[in-house]
């Protein structure tokens, strides 16, 4: 077990990630933020809160997306469905998908499929807190990264939002 980010480092990283998303421009009219269930929701809520403060704009478009019904392993493992809440149109918008750890890329593959059922975004980008390099099983890469981590596939990276730590097991 190894602490990758402690509480202060995690907070700073999330704040920096929020700044980077702002630098990309067009906020708030044209950009929507979508956290991926279940573990991307805590991160995306924090990022959305930062962006509201940084822009002094309470009305940014922020939703959550559950990808359970789009998984490619529905016959191998049971997953409980979670809430999806996207109370706005994504048609023609830039969508920033937010998740905590990018590992095999399969969740993001499912998220891209799920997103299509809500409309046709102009562009989709991916922001992750931890980018695990060299473990990808699909050609998917993040556009915004909190930290990059070189790990082997049998290791586990977990973001603990209660204690605000990132730990490598």
């Amino acid at each position: 077990m190894e602490v990758i980010l402690n509480k202060q480092q995690l907070q700073l990283t999330v704040l920096r990630l929020s700044h980077q998303l702002l630098e990309a421009g067009d906020i708030p009219a044209d950009i929507v933020f979508i956290g991926v269930q279940p573990r991307g929701v805590a991160l995306s809520a924090k990022i959305a809160a930062h962006i509201r403060v940084l822009l002094n704009e309470p009305n940014i478009q922020y939703g959550i997306l559950d990808i359970t019904f789009y998984r490619d392993d529905v016959r191998q493992e049971f997953h409980t469905a979670n809430k999806t809440d996207i109370p706005f149109s994504i048609e023609g918008k830039k969508v920033v998908l937010i998740d905590d750890v990018l590992f095999t890329g399969r969740t993001m593959r499912a998220a891209l499929d799920a997103l299509q059922d809500f409309g046709r975004p102009r562009k989709v980008e991916l922001a992750v807190l931890v980018n695990r390099r060299f473990t990808r099983e699909l050609p998917i890469q993040p556009d915004f990264t909190g930290i990059s981590l070189d790990t082997s596939p049998d290791q586990k990276v977990k973001v603990h939002w209660d204690t605000e730590e990132v730990i490598l097991y």
Binding site: Y70, K83, T84, D85, D113, Q116, D117, F118
Partner: peptide
């Protein structure tokens, strides 16, 4: 919720 989407269908 799925049934309220523009595409009311999932591939499960």
């Amino acid at each position: 919720e799925v049934l309220q989407r523009p595409v009311k269908k999932v591939p499960s």
